[in-house]
Design a protein around this nucleic acid. Structure first.
Lengths: 231, 231
DNA sequence: GCAAAAGTGTTTGGATTACACCCATGC
DNA sequence: GCATGGGTGTAATCCAAACACTTTTGC
C-alpha cells in the first residue's frame, strides 16, 4: 500500500526553533545565537534543537530555549511549521517555529550548550542565517504584525511601565508608518491602562506620565463583554 | 551532549491531516473518512497520512487528499501542528493540519485507498473521531473564523454565483449571530462583486440577484492601494 | 390579495481624521 | 527665553446600528 515500508516512515527528526522578539532603540529585535557545532558552525541562527522522542512540543520549546540561552519562563506560542526535505543537510528534519515576545531588559540571555554567543539583532538588519532561519523569522514576524492588531501583545515588548509615546513608536515601527499623536491616544481610551503616579525622569523636556497595562481588567472585559482589543 | 544518541532522534514519523471545509444547508461541514485500517479501524477521521521522507509538505497534503478522497486541485493551507507524544498509538507521530475551503457541489469526494467511506459532517454535529482529530478540527475551525474576518475566503465556500443572502447566512453561521440585512449590504459596498444578469430561479418569492466575487479587481486593489478586506 | 423574501432609504450617535494649540522641563 | 517633546480640544467627516419602508415573485 505504501511505496516504502512502514518502519521507514520513522526516519525523520523533528526540531523546534524559537523566534524571540524584543524591542529596543525603536526597533524590533530578534535573539540570535552563534552555532559552535556543525552544520553551519560559526553561523548565526535562532535558538533551536531537536525534540526528544517522548517530549511534548511546548515543553521542548522551553527546554531548548533555556539550554541555549538561559532564558526561562518565556511564554512561547507556535507559529509556522517548515518541512522542505532539504532544509537540513544531515537528514529530514521538520521544524516548528515557536515565538515569544519579551522585555529585553527583564531577561539576561547568555550563551550555553553549543551556543557560543548570543545577541539581539534588529529585524531590519539581519544577515544571512543558518538553515532556512531567515524565512522562519520572516514568516513569524508577519504573524507578530497580524497579532499586534487584535491582541494586547505589545505590552510584552515594552517595559512594565511605559510612556504613551513608546507605545506609539512601537506600533509605528511595526507598521512602518506614522500616527497623529492626539488620534493615537484617543484609540487608547478603550484599552485598559493604569496611569502611574510617577513620571519619566532625566529627560530634557516635559516628563511623560508612565502607564502599565491592566491585564486583570482586560481579562474580565473579554470574558464579560464582547470587547475586542484593536490598535 | 544529548541524553540519547543522535541517530535515535530519527525515530519519529510525520503526518498531515486535511481539514476540508464546505458549506451546505446553512452549516459549515467537514469532510470525514471512515478508516478501513488499524489503528482506529472503522472510526471516522479526517483524511490524513504519513509524509514520505523526501516529500515536501504542501505536495504531500495534496497527494494524501487525492489518495483518500479523490479530491484534487484543492488549495490547502497550513494550520496548527500537533505533537503530543501519545497522540498516535503506534509511535511518535507529529502531524500538521492543512485546511482548505471548497464548494461541495463542485467536487465529488469518493473513498479510495484505506478510506472506506466519505461523508460531509456538520461542524456542530461531530461525533468522536480517531486520534486527536476533534481537537484538530476545532483549532482549524478557529483559524477559519479568524481568517473570514479579513480575507475573502468565504467565496471559496459559496457557489460561483451566489445571492447576498447566502453570503449573509454563511457569516451568521460562522459568527453565531444575526445581522441586519440593510447594514450587512452596506458593508458589501466595499467588496468587489460582479452583479450577474441572471436571477435566482424556482423560488416562491421575489428572485434574488446573483453575484460573483471579482478576484481580479480584488487583486489589483490590494496591490495598488492599502485596501483591506473586512466583513 | 397574501405570504415570503428581496432590496433600499433615513436618522442618529459614535468613531476617525486633520489640525491647532497649550504645558512642563533642561539649559 | 527657547528648544523639545508631552498632552489636549475642536470641527468636519465618515461609519455603523436601528428601523421602516417598497418591490417582486408564487400561489
Amino acid at each position: 500500500m505504501y511505496k516504502i515500508e512502514f518502519k521507514d516512515f520513522f526516519t525523520y527528526s523533528f526540531s523546534l526553533d524559537c523566534v524571540i522578539f524584543g524591542f529596543q532603540n525603536g526597533k524590533i529585535h530578534v535573539l540570535l545565537i552563534k552555532r559552535a557545532m556543525e552544520p553551519f558552525k560559526n553561523k548565526w541562527a535562532i535558538p533551536g534543537d531537536l525534540v526528544y522522542p517522548d517530549e511534548d512540543l511546548a515543553a521542548a520549546a522551553n527546554r531548548i530555549l533555556v539550554e541555549l540561552t538561559n532564558l526561562s519562563m518565556v511564554d512561547l506560542h507556535q507559529a509556522e511549521t517548515f518541512g522542505n526535505p532539504n532544509r537540513h543537510p544531515q537528514g529530514r528534519v521538520i521544524t516548528s517555529a515557536y515565538m515569544a515576545l519579551i522585555r529585553i531588559a527583564d531577561f539576561k540571555a547568555t550563551p550555553a550548550s553549543w551556543a557560543e554567543e548570543v545577541k539581539w539583532q534588529a529585524i531590519d538588519e539581519l544577515q544571512e542565517l543558518a538553515f532556512d532561519h531567515n524565512a522562519i523569522i520572516q514568516s513569524t514576524y508577519e504573524l507578530l504584525k497580524k497579532k499586534m492588531r487584535t491582541e494586547p501583545i505589545c505590552f510584552d515588548l515594552l517595559p512594565e511601565r511605559f510612556t504613551l509615546n513608546e507605545l506609539q513608536c512601537l506600533y509605528e515601527f511595526v507598521y512602518t508608518t506614522t500616527f497623529d499623536k492626539a488620534n493615537f491616544r484617543k484609540k487608547l481610551k478603550h484599552i485598559p491602562l493604569i496611569k502611574q503616579t510617577e513620571k519619566q525622569a532625566n529627560v530634557k523636556h516635559r516628563p511623560a506620565k508612565l502607564f502599565s497595562f491592566d491585564s486583570q481588567l482586560f481579562q474580565s472585559l473579554i470574558t464579560q463583554s464582547e470587547y475586542q482589543f484593536k490598535l
